[in-house]
Measured scan of single mutants.
Amino acid sequence: TRVETATETAWISLVTALHLVLGLSAVLGLLLLRWQFPAHYRRLRHALW
């Protein structure tokens, strides 16, 4: 049971790290898009909202 718990903890930390990385890359990508294509971003936002 001790090994299982350790594996579970490792998986949880791995998944958390993955989610953090994905979230950060998504935010960075959005910022980059907004910085590179302001007109396109505004049009996209206008279409979405």
Rank of each mutant, 00 (worst) to 15 (best):
G29V: 14
T5G: 00
A39C: 08
R42Q: 13
L22Q: 01
L32P: 05
L22P: 05
A26W: 05
G29E: 03
F37W: 07
G23F: 13
G29S: 13
T5Q: 00
R45V: 08
E4S: 11
A47Q: 07
H46W: 04
Y41I: 14
S25L: 10
R42C: 10
W11V: 07
S25C: 12
T7A: 10
H19L: 05
H19N: 00
G23L: 14
S25N: 10
V27D: 01
F37I: 09
L24P: 05
L33S: 01
A10T: 12
I12G: 01
E8I: 02
L32K: 04
T1K: 12
A47L: 08
R45K: 15
L18Y: 03
A17N: 02
V21L: 10
A26V: 10
L44C: 15
W49P: 07
L28W: 07
T1M: 14
T9S: 12
P38A: 15
Y41N: 05
W35V: 15
P38K: 14
Y41S: 11
L33T: 07
L31T: 13
E8K: 07
L28N: 07
L48R: 07
V3L: 12
L24C: 09
L18G: 01
T9D: 07
V15H: 04
Y41A: 15
R34A: 02
A17W: 04
L30K: 00
A17K: 01
A39K: 09
L32C: 06
T9P: 13
L48W: 06
R43Q: 10
T5V: 02
R43H: 00
R42T: 14
R2M: 14
T16F: 07
W11N: 06
L18C: 02
L14C: 01
R2A: 12
H46S: 08
L31D: 01
T9N: 10
R34T: 08
A47W: 08
R45C: 05
P38E: 13
A10L: 02
T5W: 00
W11D: 01
E4F: 11
A47M: 05
L30W: 07
P38V: 08
V27Q: 02
L44P: 02
R2Q: 14
T9M: 13
I12L: 12
G23E: 02
L14D: 05
L24Y: 05
H46P: 01
T5K: 00
L24I: 11
L31M: 10
E4H: 10
L28S: 05
S13G: 11
R34M: 07
Q36Y: 15
L18V: 05
W35L: 15
P38T: 12
H40L: 09
H46L: 07
L28P: 03
A39E: 15
V27S: 09
W49G: 06
V15I: 11
V27N: 05
A39W: 09
R45F: 03
S25R: 02
R45W: 00
V21M: 10
A26R: 06
H19V: 00
T5D: 03
R34I: 05
R45I: 03
L32G: 04
L28D: 04
S25E: 03
T5I: 04
A17T: 08
V3C: 02
H40K: 10
Q36M: 15
A10Y: 04
F37Y: 15
R2C: 10
E8S: 04
W11Q: 03
T5S: 01
V3D: 00
H46V: 08
L20G: 08
E8N: 02
V15N: 03
T1E: 11
W49K: 06
V21P: 03
R2P: 12
I12T: 11
S13R: 07
L24M: 13
R43D: 10
L14E: 00
H40C: 14
A26K: 07
T9W: 12
W49I: 09
A26F: 12
T16S: 10
L48Q: 00
W35M: 15
V3E: 00
L22T: 10
E8L: 05
T9L: 12
T16M: 07
L44V: 13
L32N: 08
L32V: 11
V27E: 05
P38S: 15
E4M: 15
R42D: 14
V27K: 02
V3A: 04
T9E: 11
W35Y: 15
L32F: 04
P38Q: 15
T5M: 05
T9H: 10
A26L: 10
L30H: 07
L33V: 10
T9Q: 13
T1F: 13
S13L: 10
A17Y: 01
E8Q: 02
A17V: 11
R2S: 13
A39T: 15
W35C: 15
L18D: 05
T7L: 12
H46K: 09
A26C: 13
W49L: 08
A6F: 06
L14Q: 01
W35R: 15
L24V: 13
T9Y: 09
H40P: 15
W35P: 15
L31N: 00
H19D: 00
Q36W: 15
F37D: 09
L33D: 00
L44Y: 03
L20S: 04
L14K: 01
R2V: 11
L44A: 09
E4Q: 10
L48I: 15
G23N: 08
L33N: 07
L30R: 02
